[in-house]
Design a protein around this nucleic acid. Structure first.
Lengths: 232, 232
DNA sequence: CCTTGGCATATTGTATACAAAATGCAAGAG
DNA sequence: CTCTTGCATTTTGTATACAATATGCCAAGG
């Protein structure tokens, strides 16, 4: 995301443990609502309880875990309301990113984004979903970078991680996919026109569509992610 | 803020330590940039290193501390850019709260808010700054509560705490005070008219004014809070 | 005079032992 | 038969000992 500094990138033990746990949660190995046994996880990760507990604190701060006093930690189970709320906030954040990006974007940035957009349309035409997601994410990241706001970036990333823990490879049907691609093109054009308000509206709308897709998938499928929320 | 549940409210030791540290930071006993010595703080707070370190993790997650591997924790020193960014995000969040509140507000809520607004204007007329701040906060909290979005509330509170660590009892001159009160009245009216877009714009503008006041105070005074940022 | 290497000290990181609390089960009372 | 009550076990919470790392000082070399 940042890419500028790389001081050998040594990970502390709690950080490494948190990273590993995060992966276990996202890939579903640790299901939403699952109770986390410290001793068991210690063996599994090869660390002692102290760094593991610090990892717990980090993940709890990210909203991936909930810690109950004297009763251990468990993987968060997002309720429908949580998902709704998170997407609403994400929309506001992306909208802000768009407005800020307009103020700082250069012609070179726009050329880059147009190129990415073209690449994305190629993946769309070729029905290459993984590549599409990759470029899609790249574009959104680029926009966030243009906003040049560390607090925004950090907040956005945390929220994003929380939602990704749901593993919604949202059922992207052809019609929605077409629409998403078209919306993306409009965004780039709004950015090129330096129309902050329009870009903001597009981004908010884009997020609202994504939200609807995820909420629908939570309703329709008997998805194991929907567990009645953090407080059943 | 919530007020509905109170299960005797026993605080865990790390939570208590974090709370105490938070207070020390906000009241300036621990200055921005200060290095936190674990053993010293352990004695001062009467806890051992393990819960203290968990408190560190919590505060770091809140953005009040930064933890450097093998080099301990220190109180965050917000740069001008950090403050700018934080206020930008706060503006987007408050704007969202306004839009959401419009969708859910009842006539009774509006009556309550009008009453609070009147009280606030009394404190304004009487030049009672502390009471003004108290009611001001009450109104903003009420708006956030109306938004009915837990993620939003949580994000907002965290950001707010981070900025409060700066202890900006911002130099509120009479002209700005008058304007702030007037803006508040407009907000209530926009809410009563269920005009989400207008309310949003008012809130964003309100925050922008606050931001400007804080940034000015950082520039003008040789405030000890301004320390060149987290990375000098 | 400045730089560099190595040592002593201080500080943080990790593991583990002990304490406190919760959980589950079984026995007994209503 | 259900509900409580007490105990054994499990699990989490806290303190502390030990290990690893960083820091500061001093001396030797350039």
């Amino acid at each position: 995301m940042d890419g500028s500094t790389f001081p050998i990138a040594r990970l502390t033990l709690p950080e490494a443990a948190a990273e590993r746990l995060r992966a276990l949660i996202i890939e579903g190995e640790l299901a939403p609502g699952a109770k986390l046994n410290e001793r068991e996880l210690c063996e599994r990760l090869g660390v002692s309880r102290t760094p593991l507990r610090e990892a717990f604190r980090m993940l709890a701060a990210d909203g991936l875990l909930v810690q109950l006093p004297n009763r251990g930690a468990q993987v968060v189970a997002l309720s429908r309301e949580d998902v709704r709320g998170a997407f609403e906030v994400m929309g506001a954040l992306e909208g802000l990113a768009g407005e800020l990006a307009v103020a700082r974007v250069t012609d070179a940035d726009i050329a880059d984004l147009r190129a990415l957009q073209n690449q994305m349309e190629v993946t769309h035409a070729g029905h290459d979903l993984p590549a599409y997601y990759r470029i899609n994410r790249l574009i959104h990241d680029r926009l966030n970078a243009l906003a040049d706001n560390a607090v925004l970036k950090q907040t956005y990333r945390t929220l994003n991680a929380r939602l990704h823990a749901l593993r919604f490879r949202s059922n992207l049907n052809p019609a929605k996919w077409d629409q998403a691609v078209a919306e993306h093109r409009s965004m780039i054009e709004a950015l090129a026109a330096r129309d902050g308000a329009a870009l903001r509206d597009l981004l908010v709308g884009h997020l609202r569509a994504k939200q609807q897709a995820v909420l629908d998938s939570m309703d329709n499928r008997d998805d194991k992610n929907l567990q009645g929320g953090t407080r059943p």
